[in-house]
Design a protein around this nucleic acid. Structure first.
Lengths: 116, 116
DNA sequence: CAAAGCGCTTTGTAATGTCAAGTAGTAGGG
DNA sequence: CCCTACTACTTGACATTACAAAGCGCTTTG
């Protein structure tokens, strides 16, 4: 058995969780409220989003600040460590702009990868 | 509705699918057979892996080459576009080495994020 | 000649995510 | 004053997904 701890494997496990990279991308352009994140991410359920945000907060990637209890106004923002994930999203961004195209006809996919 | 096509959003959707980044990482150090990928990824189910590889092949990220039908010998390797995902895995690697630590005591997490 | 390896596919089940609705409180329009 | 919309979520039912286990044809190794 190989139970060596691999930080790269662990962080891939973290980032490949559904919605996580979308959430981080949304927060990269500044602090946002719960519903603002939901809108930017697009298609995420509130219960799933709440769970992901809680997990990211406990891991020290996002910071949650409750500004006023009533009208509930919460601000989520990236921590220093979270902000450095910019490089990850940045390279995905670069790859995407080079290789991803929208198909004109229905190919069974939402997009296609081109040579570059 | 906002049905504008966003390549970044689309590629995050692709990469956040469970196992996809692990598979790409495994293939970054050279062509591999089905079971070799399964071993490197660790914990993936064969049916799930087969489905992911088929999807990645149709998208043009991996290349599947059947070398002999009987003894089944298949070689999976990254295409040019797939190989450029090296930058994505690379930045995850850099972030991970800086921020991810294994916790000594049980914290309820498999790892923790540190300031850097 | 049996065991172990190859590359998968099939079959049920367990975990996960999604949907819709509901909660508590404020603000604005009719 | 009431109705709607906004804030941030929680709850419970349901659908999708990924899981383990088994199996298949076939070769190489012991």
């Amino acid at each position: 058995m190989n139970d060596e701890f691999c930080p790269v494997h662990a962080s891939i496990d973290l980032l490949q969780e559904k919605w996580v990279m979308h959430i981080i991308r949304a927060l990269l352009d500044g602090p946002k409220g719960f519903n603002a994140i939901a809108r930017d991410v697009g298609g995420v359920n509130t219960s799933t989003l709440a769970q992901r945000l809680e997990r990211l907060e406990r891991l020290g990637i996002v910071d949650k600040a409750v500004e006023s209890t009533m009208p509930p106004r919460t601000r989520y923002e990236l921590t220093a460590a979270g902000n450095e994930l910019q490089t990850v999203i940045g390279s995905i961004d670069a790859w995407a702009r080079k290789h991803i195209q929208q198909p004109e006809e229905s190919t069974g996919h939402d997009f296609r990868v081109v040579a570059g």
